[in-house]
Simulated assay, not measured.
Amino acid sequence: MEKNQVLQKPGNRFMEAWKRNPLISTGVVLILMVIIQTGIMIYNFGSGSIGELLLSLLTNWLNILRNNAPVGIIALGMTFAIISGGIDLSVGSTLVAVGAVVMAVVDSTGLLASVGITGVPAYFIGIVVGVAFGAFLGWLNGVLIAHGKLPPFIATLGTMQIFRSVTQQLTQHANPSVPKGFLQIANLKVGSFYIMPIVYWIILAAALYVVSKRTTFGRHVYAVGSNVRTARLSGIDVNKVKRRIYMLTGVLVAFAAIIQVSRIGSMDYASAGSGYEMDAIAAVIVGGTSMAGGKGSIVGTVLGMLIIGVMNNLLTLFGVPPFLREACKGVIVIVAVLLQKKEADA
Rank of each mutant, 00 (worst) to 15 (best):
Thr249Met: 11
Ile64Tyr: 09
Ile202Ser: 02
Leu324Gly: 04
Tyr269Ala: 10
Pro321Met: 08
Ile334Glu: 06
Val238Tyr: 05
Phe255Ala: 05
Ser177Gln: 12
Val128Gln: 09
Ala174Arg: 10
Ile42Asn: 09
Asp279Leu: 10
Ser165Trp: 09
Phe255Met: 14
Ile202Trp: 08
Val29Phe: 04
Gly138Arg: 00
Gly148Glu: 04
Leu150Glu: 05
Trp201Lys: 03
Gln161Gly: 11
Phe193Thr: 10
Val102Trp: 02
Ser114Leu: 07
Thr230Arg: 05
Gln37Ala: 13
Gly92Glu: 01
Asn187Lys: 11
Pro70Ser: 08
Ile31Gln: 05
Arg232Trp: 09
Ala206Trp: 13
Asn44Pro: 01
Trp18Val: 13
Arg244Ala: 03
Ala113Glu: 05
Ala272Asn: 10
Thr316Lys: 13
Gly235Phe: 11
Ala256Ile: 05
Gly148Tyr: 07
Ala292Asp: 10
Ser297Gly: 12
Ala113Arg: 02
Val337Ile: 14
Met78Arg: 00
Ile145Arg: 01
Leu111Thr: 14
Asp237Thr: 02
Asn312Val: 00
Pro322Tyr: 12
Asn141Arg: 00
Val28His: 07
Thr171Cys: 07
Ile50Thr: 15
Gly86Glu: 00
Arg164Leu: 09
Val286Phe: 08
Pro322Cys: 06
Ser234Gly: 08
Lys342Tyr: 13
Met311Arg: 00
Phe318Val: 13
Met278Tyr: 07
Asn141Ser: 12
Ile203Arg: 09
Val320Trp: 10
Leu57Ala: 06
Ser192Met: 11
Ala186Ile: 07
Leu317Tyr: 12
Ile245Gln: 00
Phe318Tyr: 15
Ala81Tyr: 06
Leu315Trp: 05
Ala122Arg: 00
Pro151Ala: 14
Val241Cys: 01
Ala135Ser: 05
Gly158Glu: 09
Leu53Cys: 05
Ile35Met: 14
Leu317Glu: 13
Thr171Leu: 03
Asp268Glu: 12
Trp61Gln: 09
Ala81Asp: 01
Leu54Ile: 15
Val105Pro: 00
Arg232Phe: 09
